[in-house]
Structure formats: structure tokens, C-alpha cells
């Protein structure tokens, strides 16, 4: 079980958090303009990366804030956390 450094609360046990999948998938501003294919890309298609992944987490049993996290999915090593409005670090 990881220890996650919530950007608002500090280090907490993973059991306080909920994972929210791949980060930086922006909801299309004009969904009606999209083809079925393009909409499916947004809705279902995922990178599902093995390696360094940018992902969303929610401190659901804490401050309830969403934030982003960089984690290596091959060994679960957490590399960074950053707030939703912060620029993602480079990896």
C-alpha cells in the first residue's frame, strides 16, 4: 500500500484515496462536433501505460480534493504529485 503525499494534506495512507485513471484527458469543449470515433476516443480509449503514468487521484477520505500524481505503473513507485492547476513535471 502506497503512501501518497496529498498536495493539500501531506503524506497519507493509500486507503484514504481513490484512483481516477489517466490524467490530462480533457473533456471536449464541443462534443457535438465530434464524430462517433472521436467521441469514443475520449470516452473509452486509454493509454494504459506500463511505465511512467500521469494519473488522477482523489483524497476521498480526507480533503476530497482531486490532484495529479506521477507513478511508474511497472513498480508502483510514485515520482511526484501536483495540483490540478499546476504544470505537469517532466519525466
Amino acid at each position: 500500500m502506497f503512501i501518497i503525499n496529498c498536495p493539500f494534506c501531506g503524506e497519507r495512507d493509500q486507503s484514504e484515496f481513490k484512483a481516477g485513471g489517466e490524467a490530462h484527458i480533457i473533456r471536449p469543449k464541443q462534443p457535438t462536433e465530434l464524430s462517433d470515433d472521436e467521441w469514443a476516443e475520449y470516452l473509452f480509449m486509454r493509454k494504459n501505460i506500463k511505465g511512467v503514468q500521469f494519473e488522477r487521484w482523489n483524497h476521498i477520505h480526507g480533503c476530497r480534493k482531486w490532484f495529479n500524481l506521477v507513478r511508474d505503473t511497472s513498480n508502483d513507485e510514485i515520482k511526484a504529485v501536483y495540483k490540478m492547476d499546476e504544470k505537469p513535471p517532466t519525466y
Binding site: 481516477g20 476521498i60 476530497r64 482531486w66 490540478m84
Partner: peptide, 13 residues
């Protein structure tokens, strides 16, 4: 509640 917070915080801040 979780879904609404999600949209509010991440899509429509």
C-alpha cells in the same frame, strides 16, 4: 457526490 466533485474540480474549475 463524487462525480459532481470530480467534474467541478477537474473539468469546470
Amino acid at each position: 457526490m463524487g462525480k459532481l466533485e470530480d467534474y467541478l474540480q477537474t473539468e469546470w474549475p
